Simulated scan of single mutants.
Amino acid sequence: MVQEKSGDELGLFDKYEETFIKIRDKITGYDIKNVIDFGCGTGNLCGLLSEKINVLGIDKSVEMIQEGKRKYPKMNFIECSILDVSSIKEKADIVVSSYVLHGLNEEEKRKALSNMLLLNDQKRVILIDFMFENMKSKEEYKENLLRNNRPDLWKFIESKNFFIVEELRKYVEENNLKITLEHVVNFTWIAEIYK
């Protein structure tokens, strides 16, 4: 779906590659040495960076890691759940995650975000994921899909756990951190969390 855009009626992966280029540029602009990619899959986001800096990819899928190692031999991988990073001793200057956390429930999302901050001495996290700006915009989107006789698309959205920007901002601020948000396209947002 990501590469061929087939079956992506919601435009979930519009501007996918452009967004990744923007994030890679942002990472290299910080002049850092170590990156951890949470839920890295096959390394699409940070694999190219492994030519210049130390990149550790964390994913629970052995198949994804095997493909990632084939594509990016200089990238390091650990088979691990993003919800339990107790075995990971490495720290990073920045932790990133792309299109992963929307698959978790609210408690798991908070745990994953907490783990991202735990593995990061600088407390800098970049998150690319699916989000609604607020509950009102989510409800309006639902009504629009149902009015257009597309309950199937709404059912798909409901099966995921898209972030609500307002709630993410509140969570971050409650943890005495700052956040900048950028709406990319459709449901895709970039959130940068920092001290």
Rank of each mutant, 00 (worst) to 15 (best):
I58E: 01
S50D: 00
I53W: 00
F156Y: 12
G7D: 07
H183Y: 04
E9Q: 13
D8H: 04
E167S: 11
S50K: 09
E90C: 00
G68N: 10
D59M: 02
E167M: 11
V2K: 11
K195P: 12
V96D: 10
I88R: 05
Y72P: 07
E79Q: 15
V100C: 03
K155I: 10
L48T: 14
K109F: 00
S87A: 06
F77L: 13
D129I: 09
I157E: 07
S87I: 13
S50L: 05
E4S: 15
G57K: 09
L83H: 06
L117I: 05
I78T: 06
T42D: 10
K160H: 00
A191R: 07
R124L: 05
I36A: 05
V96L: 01
T28S: 13
C40W: 01
E173V: 13
E143P: 04
N144W: 04
K123R: 10
E79G: 07
Y194D: 09
L181H: 02
E133H: 07
K160D: 12
K123T: 05
F156H: 07
G41Q: 08
E182Y: 01
S97N: 07
T42N: 12
N186P: 03
L146H: 03
V172L: 08
K170I: 04
T19Q: 00
K123C: 04
L146I: 15
N76R: 14
L177C: 05
S86K: 09
P73I: 14
R147H: 03
R110D: 11
L117K: 10
L48I: 13
L10T: 15
Y99G: 06
L127P: 11
V165I: 08
D84Q: 10
I193T: 10
C46Q: 02
F77N: 13
E63I: 13
L119K: 12
G57A: 10
E143T: 12
G7T: 12
K33Q: 11
N76C: 07
L181N: 14
H102Y: 01
V125C: 01
S137Q: 08
L49N: 04
R150A: 02
E107Q: 15
M131L: 12
I23M: 09
R24Y: 01
N34D: 12
W154R: 02
I27P: 02
G11Q: 07
Q3R: 13
E167G: 06
S114Y: 01
L45D: 13
E9P: 06
M135Y: 04
K60F: 05
K33C: 10
L113M: 14
E51T: 09
L10R: 09
S97C: 14
F163L: 14
E79F: 02
F162N: 12
I128K: 09
